[in-house]
Amino acid sequence: MLNDFISLFFPNYCLACNRGLAKGEKLLCLKCEYNLPKTDSHLHHDNFIASKFYGRAKLLHAVARYKFNKSGKVQRLLHRLKYGDKPELGTLMGSEYGKELREANFSEHYDVIVPVPLHKKKLRRRGYNQSAMFGTGLSESLELPQYENALVRNIYTSTQTKKSRLDRLKNVKTIFGYNKEVSLSGLSVLLVDDVITTGATLEACIEALTEAGATSIGVAAIASAK
């Protein structure tokens, strides 16, 4: 309620700390951008995100820009991206992270970007796919095309937030498929999501991408929990 009140009367405020933005600042103030907990996972191949997939999926990279902590500023940003009608926030974070990934030569390893899909019912209600908005920013900086409709979500599922890893795996095992009208055969795919917790959703998407003929896969997210 307080955040809605602030946004009504002070539209140019930092989405992480609610402070008024200075001239030249966009969506995030410089202080928050500097202090948000970054993972630097793109600089270390064997990182805590990659360890989530050991023995489950073979990946070129597994990276996220921020560390996710409950009740922290990163969680606030993700909440505003998903539920606060702020698609431009996802694009901005993707664009900035894409610049870092480009410096680490990620563009040389991938052909296309594919976002984790939303079910069409949820997409209609929200108006946009937050992962695709993040992918749009990555696409601009990495100069790679995004195939937004390459994966499909066949079954509407309840929120994953409070489920255990086993429950998450059971929940997503059969809900993702691939769009046969979009060719991924022989391509290297960078799969993108907003936040990585257990990795169960991404594992299911990786399986669908493999069935679609992708030769190699990496994952990138805005944030990841440890």
Results as ranks from 00 to 15, higher is better:
Met1Glu: 02
Met1Ser: 10
Asn3Gln: 15
Asn3Thr: 10
Asp4Gln: 15
Phe5Ser: 03
Leu8Asp: 06
Phe10Leu: 09
Phe10Asp: 00
Phe10Gln: 06
Tyr13Val: 06
Cys14Thr: 05
Asn18Phe: 07
Leu21Gln: 06
Lys23Asp: 10
Lys23Val: 03
Gly24Lys: 02
Gly24Glu: 10
Glu25Gln: 13
Lys26Asp: 04
Leu27Cys: 06
Cys29Lys: 05
Cys29Ala: 11
Leu30Ser: 09
Lys31Phe: 09
Cys32Lys: 00
Glu33Val: 01
Tyr34Gly: 00
Asn35Thr: 14
Pro37Lys: 01
Thr39Lys: 08
Thr39Trp: 03
Leu43Lys: 11
His44Glu: 03
His45Cys: 02
Phe48Thr: 14
Phe48Val: 05
Ile49Cys: 02
Ala50Arg: 15
Ala50Met: 15
Lys52Pro: 03
Gly55Met: 08
Arg56Glu: 08
Arg56Tyr: 09
Lys58Ser: 12
Leu59His: 06
His61Met: 08
His61Ile: 09
Val63Gln: 00
Phe68Gln: 05
Asn69Ser: 15
Asn69Cys: 02
Lys70Asn: 11
Lys70Asp: 07
Ser71Gly: 02
Ser71Gln: 10
Lys73His: 09
Gln75Ala: 15
Arg76Leu: 13
Arg80Phe: 05
Leu81Glu: 10
Tyr83Phe: 11
Glu88Asp: 13
Thr91Gln: 15
Leu92His: 09
Leu92Ser: 11
Met93Asp: 07
Gly94Thr: 10
Tyr97His: 08
Lys99Ala: 13
Leu101Thr: 09
Leu101Ala: 03
Asn105Gly: 00
Glu108Leu: 07
His109Glu: 14
His109Asp: 12
His109Lys: 15
Tyr110Cys: 01
Asp111Trp: 08
Val116Gly: 00
His119Asp: 04
Lys122Glu: 13
Leu123Pro: 01
Leu123Asn: 07
Arg124Val: 04
Arg126Ser: 07
Ser131Cys: 12
Ser131Asn: 04
Ala132Ser: 14
Gly135Asn: 03
Thr136Leu: 15
Thr136Ala: 15
Ser139Leu: 11
Ser139Asn: 05
Leu142Ser: 10
Pro145Cys: 15
Leu151Gln: 05
Leu151Pro: 11
Arg153Gln: 07
Arg153Asn: 13
Asn154His: 00
Tyr156Phe: 13
Thr157Arg: 07
Thr161Ala: 12
Lys162Ile: 01
Lys162Tyr: 05
Arg165Pro: 01
Arg165Gln: 03
Leu166Met: 06
Leu166Phe: 11
Leu169Phe: 13
Leu169Tyr: 10
Leu169Ile: 09
Ile175Asp: 07
Ile175Lys: 06
Phe176Arg: 12
Gly177Leu: 01
Asn179Ile: 13
Val182Ser: 05
Val182Arg: 04
Ser185His: 05
Gly186Leu: 01
Leu187Lys: 15
Ser188Met: 09
Ser188Cys: 14
Val189Asn: 08
Leu190Cys: 03
Val192Phe: 08
Asp193Ala: 09
Asp193Asn: 14
Asp194Met: 04
Val195Ser: 14
Ile196His: 02
Thr197Tyr: 01
Thr198Trp: 08
Ala200Trp: 06
Thr201Leu: 10
Ala204Tyr: 04
Ala204Leu: 05
Ala208Cys: 00
Glu211Val: 07
Glu211Phe: 02
Glu211Ile: 08
Ala212Tyr: 04
Ala212Glu: 08
Ala214Met: 01
Ala214Trp: 00
Thr215Gly: 04
Ser216Met: 11
Ile217Gln: 11
Gly218Gln: 10
Val219Gly: 00
Ala220Tyr: 01
Ala221Asp: 01
Ile222Leu: 12
Ala225Tyr: 09
Lys226Ser: 13
